[in-house]
Amino acid sequence: MKHDLSLLLGILIALLAATLLWVLHATLSLDPGPRLADFALARLDESGVSNPVTAVLLNYRAYDTWLELAVLLAALLGIWSLGPAPTGYQPSGPALAAMVDWIVPLAILTGGYMLWVGGHAPGGAFQAGALLGAAGVIMRLAGEPSAGLPGETAQRWLVVLGAGVFALVGGVLLVAGDGFLHYPPGQAKWLILLMESAATIAIGVTLAAAYVGGRPRRDASRR
């Protein structure tokens, strides 16, 4: 690109940034007024969890989270449709292998903790899933071509697990309860835990499989 054109773009974008900064400043100095937070916090007791972010994600706007899992699934299907996975990295040396032996179980353990703690403190399915995915990335970097994932058929089941459990719970509640993903009183906690667990596994497997970067090879589960 021409030098002066990029300079002109830079000036224009600087002006845009200055305008946005001014708008942000003006907005912050206003009185906040009513926000969704008031509604979200007012009914937190009924939501089954005490972490308001988890309540928004898994209760008030659970269908958002469901569609988000569908986005993850669609992205992975797109990656798989582009061809088989590239070959992995060369096997790691002894120092890296010893570190991976420690890091991967720790990441899985921390993921389980993150999943549970999401009910009352920052944490939840996405953080836990990200940790599981990171464990897969580390394993692939250390020379395990399948990133620790099972064979192709099992992988396909695992990646639809999250969106599938959401759809299943939602469908059952739609038929037998008050509406799609409208939890009956008192049951919310366990339904949320079930759905979050499924979402955690699906997110972790999807992220690791996306890092592998292609359809699993048939011999992927063996070295």
Partner: peptide
């Protein structure tokens, strides 16, 4: 406010998966 926090979590996941797809493409 928990609602923007939840939106950011959603956005991060969508951004990560879109980036993965774009890199593969």
């Amino acid at each position: 406010d928990p609602v923007p926090h939840a939106l950011v979590l959603t956005g991060i996941v969508v951004a990560v998966s879109a980036t993965a797809l774009a890199l593969a493409l």
